[in-house]
């Protein structure tokens, strides 16, 4: 992955998309092969150290801390960062990106709607000022309108220069925002190309875009 680009991993159920993300963020250990960030092998580090290096995952299924408030959730996202003034600055940026979260600042995260929880999960990850943001199925279980708004946000983050690895079932949307894509099938990369090229690819269209 190059700095500042959006790369998407697409593939069916059980293709190994989430496993790939979890391995990158250190929640799982690679059996073989290695994961490198600026020539450093991430496989040698524990999950919390990888976060401190700037690789932050937004886990699948909007897992927010339900019994903490929105603000507390966001503050937890900045757990690895020492400087309070910088954290406050990032908090402002997150609130600019998600004005909705500002409105709900003191509400318990568990009482937010699904879309708001997804925004919160993304906001929380952004609080760590990630170099690379790993997004796991951000559109899962959301109404189409909300899916659009989540993808808008991904575009905005891209415009701000964040490097993003996006795992998605919704291949159509993913290929629209991404620069490049990898197609994963039962743990193997079967295809890789520019996102625009993948969209035109016949077999991808058949298998993942529902074009007959």
């Amino acid at each position: 992955m190059e700095e500042g680009e959006i790369v998407t991993l697409i593939g069916g159920n059980g293709a190994g998309k989430s496993t790939t993300l979890n391995t990158i963020s250190g929640l799982l250990k690679p059996r073989r092969g290695s994961i490198r960030l600026n020539n450093e092998n991430l496989g040698n580090f524990k999950a919390h150290e990888i976060v401190a290096k700037g690789v932050v995952q937004v886990p699948e299924g909007r897992r927010v801390f339900g019994r903490l408030t929105v603000l507390e959730n966001l503050e937890m996202g900045a757990f690895t960062r020492p400087s309070r003034s910088e954290i406050a600055q990032t908090l402002e940026q997150v609130f600019t990106l998600f004005p909705r979260l500002k409105e709900r600042e003191s509400q318990l995260a568990g009482t937010l709607s699904g879309g708001e929880q997804q925004m919160l999960a993304m906001g929380r990850a952004l609080m760590a000022k990630p170099k690379v943001l790993l997004l796991d199925e951000p559109s899962m279980g959301l109404a189409p309108v909300l899916v659009d708004s989540i993808f808008d946000t991904i575009r905005k983050l891209h415009a701000l220069g964040t490097t993003i690895l996006l795992v998605e079932q919704n291949a159509r949307m993913a290929l629209q925002v991404a620069d490049r894509g990898y197609v994963l099938q039962t743990g193997e990369i079967i295809l890789t190309d520019k996102a625009t090229a993948l969209r035109e690819n016949e077999s991808v269209q058949k298998a993942y875009l529902g074009v007959l």
Partner: peptide, 24 residues
């Protein structure tokens, strides 16, 4: 404290706690 917050994050969701950089 910071430690207290880490405890509560862990209580709420161990995986996410780890994913935001808490040393479990």
């Amino acid at each position: 404290s910071r430690l207290g917050r880490a405890w509560m994050a862990m209580r709420e969701d161990e995986d996410v706690a780890q994913a935001i950089g808490i040393n479990l």
